Simulated scan of single mutants.
Amino acid sequence: MAIEKEIKLALPGDPRDAVAFFERTSGQPGVAKTVSNAYFDTPDCLLAARRMALRLRQIGGAWRQTLKTSGDAHDGLHVRHEWELPVQGPALEIESLLAECDDAAARAALTEAAPRLERLFSTDFVRTAWLLEADDSRFEAVVDVGEIHAARTSGGEAHPQRAPICEIEVELLEGNDDALRAFAERVVAALPGASRADVSKAERGYLLVRGHR
Rank of each mutant, 00 (worst) to 15 (best):
E6Q: 07
E6L: 09
K8E: 10
L9S: 06
A10W: 07
P12V: 07
D14T: 01
R16V: 06
F22V: 00
E23H: 11
S26I: 05
G27W: 12
G27N: 05
G30K: 05
V35F: 10
S36P: 01
D41N: 07
T42P: 06
T42K: 11
A49K: 15
R50K: 14
R50T: 07
R57Q: 09
G61H: 06
W63S: 04
L67G: 07
L67Q: 01
S70V: 08
S70R: 13
H74V: 09
L77W: 03
E84C: 08
E84V: 07
Q88R: 11
G89R: 01
G89W: 00
P90G: 05
E95G: 14
E100A: 14
L110Y: 01
P115V: 02
P115F: 08
R119Q: 13
L120Y: 08
S122L: 07
T123M: 04
D124E: 15
D124A: 13
T128W: 02
A129Q: 13
W130K: 04
L131E: 15
A134D: 15
A134W: 12
D136E: 14
F139Q: 02
A141T: 00
D144F: 08
V145W: 04
S154P: 00
G156P: 03
E157C: 03
H159W: 10
Q161H: 06
A163Q: 14
I165V: 15
I165M: 03
E169I: 07
V170H: 05
V170M: 12
E171L: 02
E171A: 09
G175L: 08
D177V: 15
D178I: 12
A184T: 12
A189I: 01
A190Y: 04
L191A: 04
V199I: 13
K201V: 11
R204K: 13
Y206E: 05
L208Y: 05
R210M: 12
